[in-house]
């Protein structure tokens, strides 16, 4: 049994982007649970429509969930991810768990980030996690 984090809604969230049990935790997490994460998290339907946009992601990008939820993440929220490194992988790989170094321009300043791309065929949503790196 993995003890690095507890069940969603009952205790603390997994704190590391690379934590092995993150996907399972996300599958049962509420919007409020996602807001406790220390890194940005976007949950999307298989077509890229944004379902959840957590607090940390909002503070990185300057966008609020109200503006983002219901829109296509790759084309209408963050077109800089609409490429072979991010969007193309989500579109073509039914199952992904990959960590990718990337550069976002949140608030128009280049920012080195680490992305974790998560997708499983049986999952509720697919997820993109974002955290700053050095």
């Amino acid at each position: 049994m993995d003890t690095t984090y507890a069940k969603a809604g009952t205790l603390a969230a997994p704190f590391a982007l690379a934590a092995p049990g993150l996907f399972d935790w996300l599958e049962t997490a509420s919007a409020a649970d996602l807001d406790t994460l220390p890194f940005g998290l976007v949950a999307m339907r298989p077509d890229g429509t944004v379902e959840r946009y957590n607090l940390a992601e909002g503070s990185l990008s300057g966008l609020t969930p109200e503006r983002v939820v219901g829109r296509n993440f790759f084309t209408s929220v963050a077109p800089c991810t609409n490429n072979f490194m991010v969007a193309h992988r989500f579109e073509t790989e039914p199952e992904i768990d990959a960590v990718v170094d990337y550069v976002f321009t949140f608030r128009l300043a280049p920012l080195k980030v680490r992305l974790r791309l998560l997708r499983r065929p049986d999952a509720r949503w697919m997820y993109l996690a974002v955290e700053k790196r050095d």
């Binding site: 800089c80 990337y102 976002f104 321009t105 128009l108």
Partner: peptide
Amino acid sequence: VAMANPAAAQLLMPLAGDGDL
């Protein structure tokens, strides 16, 4: 570089190689 929009990052990242803009 003081500021860059996402399109700039997307176009220039392949030039940077290491993603440093």
